[in-house]
Nucleic acid binder design. Structure first.
Length: 414
RNA sequence: GUGGGCGUAGCUCAGCAGGUAGAGCUCCUGGUUGUGGUCCAGGCGGUCGCCGGUUCGAAUCCGGUCGCUCACCCCA
């Protein structure tokens, strides 16, 4: 344990057992994305700092205190990406994707970086997978996106998942609403908990999920943003809700739903999972109709989400299980080692997993090793050139002809 | 950035009215003159996070520091 070097704070090594559990998630997501036509895209792990300042918003915690920012040798300010949507929008604009058939549907998977104090479900380098549908303001796109994440979580068997839904309206109506909410809170300052009172101007929405009674009473009479949506925004939200109902996706309206980025408009949503610790959000997203224009592109509505892979793993409680092997080739006598490797090669070319002892173990040691690896069968090569195929489950073995090895292994049960 | 808990073998931990380090698991070897999974024996493996202080003597006490972890904040 006294190793001199450790993975940097908030980072971690993904060891083989973990890698297997992650691979399952990644495969499931890739299949869901492919079937729905969300094509993979990958953007760099770092971008110009300004992309995030303009895209995510200078007032957000992410930009104010959580970015890994440094200067490159040319004096440019570079930032390790804290989120995936702004870079994808940058790519959309840079490659003129507005000229493609709209919407452009994309999916991604990769590492992201935020300089936060680590805790359960929160790391400095973490992994997200996500989807974006760019170029349509149809509520159908909002619901299709939500369906993808709901499907993924369901297919993985994630327990206790809940969908929270909200709408922010346009940037203007959102700003107006927040002023109204602050005014309401200021008018009742005396009845609020100290915590909430101190954050009225910083984060008034948080007052909605305060536990103390005084605050709850004030919030019961507070305006909600959903009530303040104007005509088109209200209609859009109603359609999203109706479509979710039609798709059989349960959800609850949450007036306090918070997103960490400034660019969201209209629909926002969050999948939460109890029992994850303090970081209960497993994935979330929303519509960002103004972002692409904000970044210098043509006015382009879009919707998308991201989910935290570490959070999904936490919710699944998975360890990855044992890898297993189809065959372990054992030698009864050292002179057979070269032949063992050759035969393992044949098995591998046939699509089977096969290993040989690389450590000079005794016959007994090799079988023990095969057992530890979870090998289903052991092929034992005798000094006289004959061979036995041993079923590691039952302990039964029979002679086999290594000239017809693939047939022998594929055919017989043992 | 703030607060709580914790830092002893690869892993999980015991040891702590201060006397100079242990267990289980893992791994390797043997018991089994060819054959694993149970059992038994042996072996490998530790600057007791680091620095300093008290003491004849510290893993055990004190101070500092670093790290991990949980929570606040905030979020994937």
């Amino acid at each position: 344990m006294a190793s001199k070097y450790q993975a940097p704070r908030g980072t971690f090594d993904i060891l083989p057992a973990q890698a297997r559990a992650r691979a399952r998630i990644e495969r499931a997501a890739a299949a869901i994305f492919a079937r729905a036509g969300y094509e993979p895209i990958a953007t760099p792990a770092f971008e110009d700092t300004e992309l995030f300042e303009r895209g995510v918003g200078r007032s957000t915690d992410i930009v104010r205190k959580e970015m890994f920012t440094f200067e490159d040798k040319g004096g440019r300010s570079i930032t390790l990406r804290p989120e995936g949507t702004a870079p994808i929008c940058r790519a959309y604009i840079e490659h003129g994707m507005h000229k493609l058939a709209q919407p452009v549907k994309l999916s991604y998977l990769g590492p992201f970086f935020r300089h936060e104090r680590p805790q359960a479900g929160r790391h400095r380098q973490f992994h997200q997978l996500g989807a974006e549908a760019i170029g349509t303001d149809s509520p159908l796109a909002d619901v299709e996106a939500i369906m993808l994440l709901a499907d993924l979580l369901a297919e993985l068997g994630t327990p206790g998942v809940e969908l929270r839904l909200g709408s922010l309206g346009s940037l203007d109506s959102r700003r107006a609403y927040l002023e109204e909410l602050k005014a309401h809170l200021h008018a009742h300052e005396g009845e609020l908990s100290r915590d909430v009172r101190e954050r009225i101007d910083l984060n008034p929405l948080r007052a909605f999920d305060a536990d103390d009674e005084g605050t709850q009473a004030v919030m019961a009479a507070a305006p909600t943003i959903v009530e303040r949506l104007d005509g088109e925004d209200a209609e859009h939200f109603a359609e999203v809700r109706a479509l979710l109902e039609a798709a059989g996706i349960e959800h609850t309206i949450d007036p306090a739903l918070v997103r960490g980025l400034d660019y969201y408009t209209r629909t926002i949503f969050s999948f939460v999972c109890e029992g994850l610790g303090a970081q209960s959000e497993i994935g979330g997203g929303g519509r960002y109709d103004g972002l692409i224009e904000q970044l210098g592109g043509p006015p382009t509505p879009a919707v998308g989400w991201a989910a935290g892979i570490e959070r999904i793993l936490l919710a699944l409680g998975e360890d990855g299980g044992a890898p297993g092997r189809d065959v372990f080739v054992v030698v009864a006598e050292d002179g057979q080692r070269q032949r063992a490797l050759t035969l393992a090669g044949e098995l591998r070319h046939a699509g089977l997993s096969a290993e040989v002892d690389l450590a000079g173990r005794s016959l007994k040691g090799q079988l023990k090793h095969a057992d530890r690896l979870g090998a289903r069968r052991a092929l034992i090569l005798e000094a006289d050139g004959s061979a036995q195929l041993r079923d590691m489950g039952t302990g039964r073995q029979r002679p086999v002809d290594t000239a017809r090895l693939i047939d022998e292994v594929a055919g017989g049960g043992s």
